[in-house]
Write a protein that binds this DNA or RNA. Structure first.
Ligand SMILES: [Zn+2]
Ligand SMILES: [Zn+2]
Ligand SMILES: [Zn+2]
Ligand SMILES: [Zn+2]
Lengths: 134, 134
DNA sequence: ATTGACCTTATAGTAGCTTTATAGTTTAAA
DNA sequence: TTTAAACTATAAAGCTACTATAAGGTCAAT
């Protein structure tokens, strides 16, 4: 299977596959005589794994870490679970931060109606005056 | 006032100030004979404005846009308010996406306790099998 | 023989800085 | 007075996870 077919199968762009190979996330495939990459089913599974991790918001470094655990399957899986726990708490703190931000933005927006000049805009004034409780 | 003092005053790094100048967000200050930048209070206010916008999650492009409105203070402020509305809805959709992600991650995590080998880890199995309702 | 679809590598761009490298200037201590 | 610390300058690279572009080689069909 060549790179285009693999790309279509998994739903990524060919450049992305080459990028993952370059980053050490996907093992370098064999080459045809003309230099074309030839992929196996295993590559397909590996690529799908990477993509599902990305959908879960894992960084390439975290994926790399998971792969290193997969390479040593008789270790206890505490490290895997811990990685996910860390990721969950990271996501949660992002949510918390964004919710606080939303509150701030909404209150800022409430300080202006649409019938003013820029000079008197409550939004700009609110930012400029810096009444921001961090 | 030199760049280091301004940086300390506003709480940014000197490189960040030079970066904003280069990006056209901060007007180029006068220079001493030795080439050192000399800042005024206006620069301090401008920099503080940028920083508060950044804290509100606005992009440099959005800040640039706000600055262009400030330069024309007798326009109606509808564009300012619209910019903020857009930003708020952007933040809200981020929150929604992250909340869905958190749910997915938590359910994935629940599929493993800590007493397994990597081979049998519920988390890794969950990712590999791809039972992900997008 | 030439078109078109596919493949190759290398390089640059995205956002918002941060880091590094290299060098010149000012200020204070020894 | 010398010298070292602290400050300034520019330019360029690094960060993340790709995406896009350029310039070219390969292959099947027309
Ligand atoms: Zn993470
Ligand atoms: Zn307004
Ligand atoms: Zn925005
Ligand atoms: Zn586990």
């Amino acid at each position: 299977m060549r790179i285009g077919q693999l790309a279509q199968l998994v739903g990524v762009e060919t450049q992305t596959i080459r990028f993952y190979e370059q980053q050490g996330l996907l093992p370098p495939p064999d080459r045809q005589d003309n230099g074309y990459r030839v992929y196996t089913e295993k590559h397909g599974e590996g690529l799908a794994f990477i993509r599902r991790c990305r959908i879960l918001g894992l960084s390439l470094a975290e994926i790399h870490e998971l792969q290193s655990y997969q390479d040593d399957p008789h270790q206890p899986c505490t490290a895997v679970n811990a990685l996910l726990d860390d990721h969950i708490s990271h996501v949660r703190s992002q949510i918390t931060a964004l919710q606080a931000l939303e509150k701030q933005l909404v209150s800022l927006r409430a300080s202006c109606n649409d019938d003013r000049e820029v000079e008197a805009c409550g939004v700009l004034a609110g930012i400029s005056e810096g009444n921001m409780h961090q």
